[in-house]
């Protein structure tokens, strides 16, 4: 690189920035549609790989003593007697029109069933994400205050946190806070108190991941020439963090948050089951156990859709934090 980069070509670039952003969003949406199709296809065929007769599932699972006639009737009702390719295309067509079919086991429409479960899981995931961010920022900010010991403690906490499996952590917090101390219910009761332990279980490992990536860039930012300039203007250490460094540190955390949302949903399967909390995760687990194909596909599609939306959102958020990012 030669010294003193020039910028005479910036004006046209600026003008086209809005256009480029629109193009990028369009691309993202097209990519999203592709992902949804791929998810639907993969799920459809993956479920077919599970041994056993789906018609059996319709009639109450493997244990049921359904007659051959009943099975044939069920196959006809759900189109299971068609060739698999026809079934697949029919399924795709239904999904494209928003028709998720009806549950084998619950005998209700899948769409309203899932919508009723979605809010609980979204609340759980959203709260966990927020708490994870808060924890990660607190630990990263606290432990980059200068001393080496604090840094060791900080990164140690993050590594341990990131390594905790959900099922183990859930058991631990129940033992400590419910059984031992008796502060909180071991089962997720309605109301804010019931949320504390599930959110804690999901947030702590995620905070470990977030903290690890943010600590690194926070340290870089605090050591950067612009931080020195800020200090030389009379900015306090807190000011340097709030005005400059945290913004730079947040950037990798934001990119990670898209992934984190997927991580939280998969964690929700475990957490909702352990805390007996209604939600998509538990619905998914039950549906897989009962081989309830329409519900499984529905849950997977909704999760994929949410994941795509969250990714686009984090992308936009990243652009707000870093206005210099190129489309």
């Amino acid at each position: 690189m030669t010294p003193g980069s020039t910028s005479e070509t910036r004006a046209p670039a600026r003008r086209s920035r809005a256009g480029a952003l629109a193009l990028r969003l369009t691309g993202r949406l097209a990519g999203g549609v592709f992902v949804l199709w791929a998810v639907a296809t993969l799920t459809f065929f993956a479920i077919r790989l599970i041994p056993g007769d789906p018609a059996q599932a319709v009639l109450g699972g493997p244990g049921s003593q359904a007659s051959e006639e009943a099975l044939a009737a069920a196959r006809a009702e759900y189109g299971l007697d068609q060739p698999i390719l026809v079934q697949y295309l029919l399924q795709l067509g239904r999904l494209a029109t928003g028709d998720f079919g009806s549950s084998y086991s619950l005998r209700t429409e899948v769409a309203p069933l899932l919508l009723s479960q979605l809010s609980g899981t979204l609340l759980l995931a959203g709260l966990s994400l927020a708490i994870a961010w808060l924890l990660a920022l607190l630990v990263a900010t606290w432990t980059t205050r200068g001393t080496r010991a604090a840094e060791w403690v900080g990164s140690g906490l993050e590594i341990v946190g990131a390594g905790l499996p959900h099922f183990w952590l859930a058991t631990l917090v129940i033992l400590v806070f419910s059984v031992g101390l008796g502060w909180l219910p071991p089962i997720s009761t309605p109301g804010p108190l019931g949320l504390v332990l599930p959110v804690l279980t999901l947030a702590v490992p995620l905070a470990g991941f977030l903290g690890q990536v943010m600590r690194e860039s926070l340290l870089d930012a605090l050591d950067s020439p612009y931080a020195l300039s800020a200090r030389a203007r009379g900015e306090s250490e807190t000011g340097v963090r709030l005005v400059h460094a945290l913004r730079h540190a947040a950037l990798p955390g934001i990119s990670l948050s898209g992934w984190a949302f997927g991580y939280l949903i998969s964690g929700a399967v475990v957490v909702e089951t352990i805390f007996a909390r209604p939600g998509l995760g538990r619905t998914l687990l039950n549906a897989v156990t009962l081989r309830d194909v329409p519900v499984v596909i529905g849950v997977v599609m909704i999760v994929a859709l949410t994941y795509i939306l969250v990714t686009v959102l984090t992308d936009l958020l990243g652009r707000i934090v870093d206005p210099t990012a190129r489309a």
């Binding site: 003193g4 020195l228 009379g234």
Partner: peptide
């Protein structure tokens, strides 16, 4: 700092917060 003494730090190209 900044009121009585102003510092023009090294690395002019990266001494202002890019964001």
């Amino acid at each position: 700092r900044g009121r009585e003494i102003g510092l023009i730090s090294q690395d002019a190209l990266v001494s202002l917060d890019p964001f």
